[in-house]
Design a protein around this nucleic acid. Structure first.
Lengths: 201, 201
DNA sequence: TTAAAGAATGAATAGGAGTTCAATTCTTTA
DNA sequence: TAAAGAATTGAACTCCTATTCATTCTTTAA
């Protein structure tokens, strides 16, 4: 034998893989998935298109990983917010406002993750993450019902509804509002969520 | 001149156009937009593919018209429900349950209209119709606030939120529930909507 | 009946983006 | 330094449908 992968090569391959992912992530963050053609990703990553295929079997696999990476961050952020100290209402408010704030910080990315038309297999990832959000909210709702803060309800449905509610308001009124109006819009959404879960007075 | 379109020809052309639209509508209703390739539409309509182009400049135009046709029916149905006699709460309940019932009656179509990945120009139609739903709900919310049935709120935001809420719950929990569970799920969604708009006791 | 104008046909074409692969360059070890 | 094994390259290829258009029917009016 005259060749075996050394740590150095391993490291460089890891770095190439990382570059490709980062390039794709950046393109998606700027122009959505449609802007991330393989040739564009390759150019941005500084490799040939063929090289991408040594790291990702298909474009869909690459996109799925980009989707997971981006979405997981959002889910984690919401999870942290939901896990803070305080009443369930406060934690729900924080979780929701975290979602809103982060979506506003990168609206194109938010659009890509929430609503951009994508390949069905990437859409499957989207559904996974919508469920991940829903699970977090569902747990919070259950807790709030036990503590008596929220009225009795089907937590699974309310959780899904909140996810849909947040997505739609991010794409609709909020994105087109002026910067000064944003805070009040965000406040409206939070108030709406609290009403929806039936916070008792 | 030796040829001029007569009423007979006019009528047949109208009928061909109608066949094409109907074929497309049916395919979309069964398998979504992805199942409605031009060749499939032509076959279903009993014409050659080239013929479609004498009636619709591009596939996108055809799809947009199919989308509008289908969506308008849904919007009209909700509008009727919202315009019945009764309290604003009752009318909201009816509007929401109308939406749910109709979505359940044709789930594939509901998916195509609500969430199937489509061309951006068809997506634009989708946004139009989401706004149409929202407008109906917004008017109802305004009325309910004036009458004192609903708490003060930003009706535009709540309306958008309800649209998102309905769409998400149609795709999530409801579609996968058993037939017997459907009614209770629908009831949960209605109750949720009433809480969200802040129905006063 | 016939010529002009339209309408319909469907095989051929176009175009765009993902994917492949023969040739090339790089790494490693003997 | 050489040879084997990998990795990289990017132009060529593939695939898939939407779209076109030369040809063939139909219809109309003289």
């Amino acid at each position: 034998m005259a060749y075996r992968e050394t740590a150095l090569v391993r490291a460089r391959k890891d770095s190439v893989r990382h570059s490709i992912l980062e390039a794709a992530r950046s393109l998606v963050g700027q122009g959505g998935f449609r802007a991330a053609q393989m040739s564009a990703v390759a150019a941005a990553a500084g490799v040939a298109t063929g090289t991408i295929y040594r790291y990702f079997p298909t474009q869909i696999d690459l996109f799925a990983e980009v989707f997971r990476g981006n979405s997981q961050r959002e889910v984690d952020a919401m999870q942290s917010a939901a896990a803070t100290a305080g009443s369930c209402s406060q934690r729900l408010s924080l979780a929701v406002s975290t979602f809103i704030t982060r979506a506003l910080r990168n609206r194109r990315l938010a659009y890509a993750l929430i609503a951009e038309p994508v390949d069905p297999q990437v859409e499957a990832e989207r559904l996974n993450y919508r469920q991940a959000y829903a699970k977090i909210l569902e747990a919070l709702l259950e807790e709030g019902m036990v503590s008596g803060e929220f009225v009795r309800q089907d937590a699974r449905i309310t959780a899904a509804a909140l996810v849909g509610l947040l997505g739609e308001t991010m794409l609709g009124p909020l994105l087109h509002s002026t910067p000064t109006a944003r805070q009040s819009v965000a406040d409206s959404i939070i108030a709406l969520c609290l009403r929806a879960v039936g916070v008792k007075p």
